[in-house]
Computed example of a mutant assay.
Amino acid sequence: MIHEALLQLFRNRPELAAEVLRDALGAPVPGFTEARIEPADLTEVVPVEHRADLVVLLLDGRPVLGIVVEAQLGRDPDKEYAWPSYLVAVRARYRCRACLLVATTDEAIAAWCAEPIDMGPPDWVLRPYVLGPSAVPVVTELAEARARPELAVLSVMAHGQSAAGLAIAVAALTAAAGLDQERQALYLDVVLSSLNEAARRSLEEKMKSGYEFQSDFARSYVAKGRLEGQREGRLEGQREGRLEEAANAVLKVLEARGLEIPPEVRARVLASTDMSELDRWLRRAAVIADASALLDTTSS
């Protein structure tokens, strides 16, 4: 989920790739009038498949920069060879400069991703731009979150476990309230999964109380959760009722046959949560000569 959520933020706002390169990582980004997602299948004539996670193309009448976006959640030694091939393919396809942007939610992985890749002499070195948690800004201002909701959600993913997690989450969901329901659903799930338990409970309470960030979708999300909880409660209650009836039926058959029921057998029957087990005991209760044999698993 984290891998796909990271990429979806860039898919939903291609400009985000340029913004984090320029504002968070200090990279030189050329002026552009359009940012769009391009096919990530970089296979050329040579019969070897090269598939990046995402390719963002910046244009100013013509392509000016190709950004290969990779979501990386663990160490993969093959990336040392795959990443350069992605950049070469993008540069050849769009006839423009290309760079690599790696996004991760782990600082140790960020350090690993940032290691330069020596391509060979004389000075051919690939230096990835890496967007780790420490490089992502803490977004708590509502105006900034509304202007760049994807950055706000990215901020929750990076800093949701910190003391500022709840404030960041509130800003992100406030920004998401004006988006389409598909993005709201994704961002809400990402935000909730990125918080610690205490912050998540506080956020859910705010949602239930009708806090200002609450949208029609958020209200329906909470209502759906309540209805599902009520439905699960009703189903559980019905199941418990059926178990109790079945357990009492077993005991009544034994009593009707005049058999003395040992306390441990009675307690075991009443504690059972397995309907098939109770059904089996009910059939045995009609034929056994001693109630203590009810729980005997060695005979039919």
Rank of each mutant, 00 (worst) to 15 (best):
P133A: 03
R146A: 09
A199T: 11
V190Y: 00
K208N: 11
R146S: 06
V153G: 01
A177I: 07
A167W: 00
A172H: 08
V102D: 06
S209W: 02
P133W: 05
S220W: 14
F213E: 11
R95D: 13
L154V: 10
M119S: 11
L151C: 08
G178W: 12
A199C: 12
E212D: 15
G120R: 08
S193Q: 14
P133R: 03
L188K: 14
E141F: 04
A163L: 15
L100S: 03
A199P: 09
A108G: 12
H159K: 07
K206D: 10
Y129S: 10
K208L: 15
E107P: 14
D189T: 07
S215E: 01
G132N: 12
V156K: 05
I109G: 01
Q181T: 15
E115Q: 15
V190F: 03
L195F: 01
T104A: 06
P137F: 03
P149A: 04
Q184N: 08
A152P: 05
E182P: 04
A218R: 11
I117A: 03
Q214K: 10
D118S: 11
D216C: 02
D216A: 06
G132M: 09
S215F: 10
L131A: 00
Q214P: 03
L131D: 01
F217N: 05
C99H: 06
L186Y: 04
R127N: 11
L195P: 08
P149W: 01
E197P: 05
A152C: 04
E141C: 08
A167R: 11
D180Q: 05
S162I: 11
A177D: 09
E205K: 09
P128C: 06
N196E: 13
E204Q: 14
K206V: 04
D189G: 14
A167G: 09
L166I: 03
C113F: 09
L131E: 01
Y221A: 13
A218V: 13
L188V: 07
G178N: 07
A169N: 00
L173M: 06
K208S: 15
Q161T: 13
A171Y: 08
E204G: 04
E141H: 12
P121E: 14
A172I: 00
V156L: 07
G165A: 11
E182L: 14
S155R: 07
S193F: 09
P137M: 02
